[in-house]
């Protein structure tokens, strides 16, 4: 199974005095759901862009199974905050798009796309137009599209940030089910503390200016949900509340340190 490694990564925009990210080291392997949590300006999206290969780090090394990352590729699937689906294709073609690019014959790629659409509870939506979908449905298509290309790791850039609270909770639960069934390593970027604590097996707290890792936590709430416990029971568990408050306190402490 895949192992993603980041060794002492630094990133800097050309001409900027301060780096965006400084000295980030991470590993992401099978069965892991790594959540990077941070306020805006902590370089969350920059981190994801580096791993996806959209931009190159100024320092350090990113590798997947020992092979250095040099650019975007189908082995690192990405789910974007604003779905980034192609409106000239219907739902089925969008999901099959990665396989189409890889030259997979139509019948085969459509079968795979149907399978993934039912994995994200969108069976029956194959022929729909993208603009006929709700925000949550679009994000599910985006997730199915990323998974259809059979990436070795899945990168998610604030995928539920634009959804309403109710849909967001449904999507979090859906993500955990998909994660458990596909067993893919997932890196998820978010600024939502409860989401981060609920989903993460490994939580990385990023601090801004420059973006760096402030704290790492190992959590098991997502695993408990995947094992069958209900989301409400987990979220009202004193352990969960304590962890959430701890993370919240860390974020505020960091903010006060900066203001002082």
């Amino acid at each position: 199974m895949a192992l993603l490694e980041l060794e002492r990564i630094g990133a800097q925009y050309p001409g900027a005095a301060e780096p965006v990210l400084q000295d980030i080291s991470l590993t992401l392997g099978p069965e892991q759901l790594l959540v990077a949590l941070g306020p805006s300006g902590s370089g969350k999206t920059s981190l994801l862009n580096l791993i996806a290969g959209f931009t190159a780090p100024s320092q350090g090394r990113i590798s997947l199974d020992g092979v250095p990352v040099t650019g975007p590729s189908a082995e690192r699937g990405v789910v974007f905050q604003d779905d980034a689906l192609l409106p000239w294709q219907n739902v089925l073609d969008n999901v099959a798009f990665g396989l189409q690019l890889a030259g997979v014959p139509r019948a085969q790629r459509e079968a795979k796309a149907r399978e993934l659409l039912s994995l994200v509870d969108l069976a029956g939506f194959e022929q729909r137009r993208i603009w006929e979908l709700s925000g949550g449905q679009k994000q599910r298509v985006g997730l199915a599209r990323a998974l259809a290309a059979e990436p070795r790791v899945l990168l998610m850039d604030e995928p539920f940030g634009a959804l309403d609270a109710f849909t967001r909770e449904q999507m979090q639960e859906l993500l955990l089910q998909v994660w458990r069934r596909t067993a893919k390593p997932v890196l998820l970027i978010t600024h939502d503390i409860e989401e981060a604590v609920f989903l993460a097996t490994d939580l990385v707290l990023l601090a801004p200016n420059p973006g760096r890792i402030a704290e790492r936590l190992h959590l098991d709430f997502g695993k408990r949900y995947a094992a069958g416990e209900s989301a409400r029971a987990i979220k009202s568990d004193p352990d969960f509340i304590a962890t959430r408050e701890h993370v919240l306190a860390q974020v505020f402490a960091e903010r006060q340190r900066r203001q002082a």
Partner: peptide
Amino acid sequence: VDPAKLRAAQALGA
């Protein structure tokens, strides 16, 4: 062209 769509296609191997 929306850069997010370009990146999405690149991340799918285009």
